[in-house]
Nucleic acid binder design. Structure first.
Length: 680
RNA sequence: GCCCCCGUAGCUCAGUGGUAGAGCGCAGUCUUGGUAAGACUGAGGUCAUGGGUCCGAUUCCCAUCGGGGGCUCCA
């Protein structure tokens, strides 16, 4: 960072030669050569990596440097492209509104944002106007020029930018200054990037550590503003809210279009949309925010999901329990939930108060709470009598409905609801059994998730947050090591999540990728070091001593509602046969064949298949269309040819068909699809 | 919880300071023999709720409820 890199005369054509390594090959270049010259024939190279650090293309090479060209379509290249697009956005905003105070503008996944302090929030019309201004700036071909400045110089230049001044003051702690702040100020010296027009005048400047594209022109027409929203300055709700504009940027217009198509696809799959279209569930206003009702078709899917899970849990040695939805405060005082999570719980109901004739309280009211977690209830089952080591591991399972008072702004369809049902298990085991139990639990959940159609996983290990946790260091250490060991032995990719653990113990979470590449946090396996202590859980060991069991919390779906939403989006509403609300729709070519098909339907029903005959007055093509829109896996068609041959014709979701299939074969094929849980 | 946007028929959405419209869906009649919309007729709305401004409010203003996009949060 000690050599100035911009506004220097071109390197001399001849001069002392230096040795450098370029893209892995040793070579010599004239001293003072820049990346621009080195990669002059390769337009896709927009940035350099010199000795492992990203630098502007205009950086000069020094002797011994290891240099790589970074292509615009690489992850680093894309980040630089998007960061530069954020600068163009800020320039456009300042051009329209010179009084704006600039926040930060980092790249994010698929795009960028920039935060502004403005009097009036941005409107959609503002975004359209800004898109136009940006296009003009991009077309101008302004170059990004790096300039090193001292703290005092920066303060003088940015005197009217209070947020930038704050960042300058924070630069030594940039990593913790807030989301994105590190792209503005690094730990080293400060730099300002000037946007210079072709005539040499400075169009705009911003405090920024870079690097940037050589020219705005490289943003091309792959950038577009997406939306505006509020965001807290430096990510804290104690700070003022700024107006954030989100944009996306891609190396080419085609990639931009592909990205917009992906967004459209995600919208088509949105479980809230499909829930209405397919008549699966709804959120009646009268019930309240975040509380769903499942309609008959959604009910079938949910029942199938639960039934299969229940069967597998029995096979895996779990015991089924049931607990109430409401409890006296005492239980959650004991468990510590009222200390840690009272904000997230529905407020108490006060019951059983009795007054005497004078209106004085004769008997104090009791506080009752809706339960936000099942574990304390399961613990009471464990504690209902003395336990022996012979009973361990004791695996208690329940589809337990819980209620959490989620803040109004976070409620989101079925994925973030206020009432939901956990497929919740608590395993009580001895310390010696701990590792085997965790291994068993993790293997079990992965295996089961695959049966529901998810098979691309990685694991996350959430470890202790020292400021928000209970329990001894030794126990945390042992628990974390055990989880890590199990995770590593699973062979799956493991990502660290430092400080992400709940207060009571570390956890492994399973992240699953869906059909369009989005990841969802699914199952969790958590060790609890807290509750066995608080409830003084014990068992009699083989040697007659009293021992404390360990407790493992384990949920597979997390919440059935949420998993339902994930599967709906994963399958885009086209569920595999075993989950599909209607598995077979029989459509006669004409009314005359209704009787023939009715018999086939009856036969399927005796096998438990959810089959129905379309005897509506619609015409044949309309019936096909209706079945298609309902995403029914098997459409059975019969006309004269089929009836004479004792056959039916299949029509599948993709429009393909198979004619003249003998009824017995067709039935077996449908049954096999249900049995094997295959997608069709 | 905070900021912005939204709330009109079952669904998707037009529209207006003088009490409303389309398409789909639904009902009925006629029609209908091979792979994504046959025709016609009809029913259906306190324009989310409550206040306010106004001669008059679905329309303008405020509040509440609900939804959306973010931020913060997510045991």
């Amino acid at each position: 960072m000690s050599t100035p890199e911009s506004d220097l005369p071109p390197a001399p054509a001849s001069g002392p030669q230096i040795s450098v390594t370029v893209d892995g090959e040793a070579t010599t270049v004239t001293e003072g050569t820049t990346g621009t010259e080195l990669f002059s024939g390769r337009r896709e190279i927009v940035v350099l990596r010199i000795d492992g650090e990203l630098r502007d293309l205009s950086a000069r090479l020094t002797a011994g440097a290891v240099v790589e060209g970074v292509s615009v379509d690489s992850p680093d290249g894309l980040a630089v492209l998007r960061h530069s697009a954020a600068h163009v956005l800020a320039q456009a905003v300042q051009q329209i509104n010179p009084d704006v105070k600039l926040g930060i503008g980092p790249p994010v996944t698929d795009g960028f944002y920039y935060d502004f302090d403005v009097e009036q929030p941005f409107t959609p019309e503002d975004l359209k106007a800004l898109d136009k201004v940006m296009a003009r700036i991009i077309k101008e071909g302004q170059s990004f020029r790096r300039r090193e400045v001292s703290d005092d110089e920066a303060r003088a230049e940015l005197a009217d930018q209070p947020y930038k001044l704050e960042l300058i003051g924070l630069k030594s702690t940039a990593d913790t200054a807030g989301e994105g702040a590190a792209v503005e100020v690094g730990a080293g010296g400060l730099t300002i990037y000037d946007n210079v027009r072709r005539d040499g005048t400075v169009a705009w400047k911003d405090l920024c550590r870079g690097p940037h594209l050589p020219s705005t022109r490289l943003i091309g027409n792959g950038a577009q503003l997406m939306r505006s929203a509020a965001a807290y300055w430096r990510g804290s709700e104690k700070n003022p809210q700024l107006q954030r504009i989100y944009g996306t940027a891609w190396p080419t217009k085609d990639e931009l279009r592909a990205y917009l198509d992906r967004l459209a696809e995600a919208e088509r799959r949105d479980h809230r949309r499909l829930g209405t279209e397919l008549d699966l569930f709804s959120f009646p206003d009268e019930i309240g925010s975040g509380l769903a009702v499942f309609h008959p078709k959604g009910g079938i899917i949910r029942t199938e999901m639960e039934e299969y899970s229940r069967r597998r849990h029995i096979e895996a040695g779990y015991s089924f329990v049931n607990t109430p939805h409401i409890t006296k405060a005492r239980l959650y005082e004991l468990s510590g939930h009222l200390d840690w999570y009272a904000d997230g719980m529905y407020p108490p109901m006060q019951l059983d108060e009795e007054l005497d004739a004078d209106g004085n309280i004769r008997k104090a009211a009791q506080d009752y709470y809706l339960k936000p977690m099942n574990c304390p209830m399961h613990i009471l089952i464990y504690r209902s009598r003395g336990r022996s080591y012979r009973e361990l591991p004791l695996r208690l399972f329940e589809f337990g409905t819980v209620y959490r008072y989620e803040k109004s702004g976070v409620v989101h369809g079925l994925t973030r609801a206020r009432g939901f049902t956990q497929d919740d298990a608590h395993i009580f085991a001895s310390r010696e059994q701990m590792k085997d139990e965790i291994t068993h639990a993790l293997g079990f959940v992965l295996d089961l998730l695959k049966d529901y159609g998810l098979d691309d996983f990685y694991l996350e290990l959430s470890t202790r947050n020292p400021e928000k946790s209970v329990g001894s260091d030794e126990l945390w250490q042992e628990a974390t090591d055990t989880l890590r060991q199990v995770a590593v032995e699973s062979g799956l990719e493991l990502v660290a999540d430092p400080g992400g653990a709940a207060f009571y113990g570390p956890k492994i979470s399973v992240q699953a990728k869906d059909a369009i590449g989005r990841t969802w946090q699914m199952s969790t396996v958590q060790l609890d070091l807290n509750l066995p202590e608080l409830f003084e859980l014990e068992y009699a060991a083989a040697d007659g001593t009293r021992q404390r069991p360990v407790m493992i919390h384990r949920a597979l779906f997390g919440s059935i509602e949420r998993f339902f939403a994930v599967l709906t989006e994963h399958y885009a509403g086209a569920f595999p046969t075993w989950l599909a609300p209607v598995q077979v729709r029989a459509i006669p070519v004409a009314e005359a064949f209704e009787g023939y098909l009715a018999e086939v339907v009856a036969q399927l029903r005796t096998h438990g298949v959810r089959a129905e005959l379309d005897s509506s007055h619609d015409r044949f093509p309309k019936k096909i269309r209706t079945a298609s829109k309902e995403k029914i896996p098997f459409v059975l068609i019969a006309g004269g040819e089929d009836a004479e041959a004792g056959a039916v014709s299949f029509r599948f979701r993709d429009g393909s068909q198979e004619n003249g299939v003998p009824v017995a074969v067709a039935v077996e094929r449908i049954l096999a699809s249900i049995r094997d849980r295959t997608q069709v």
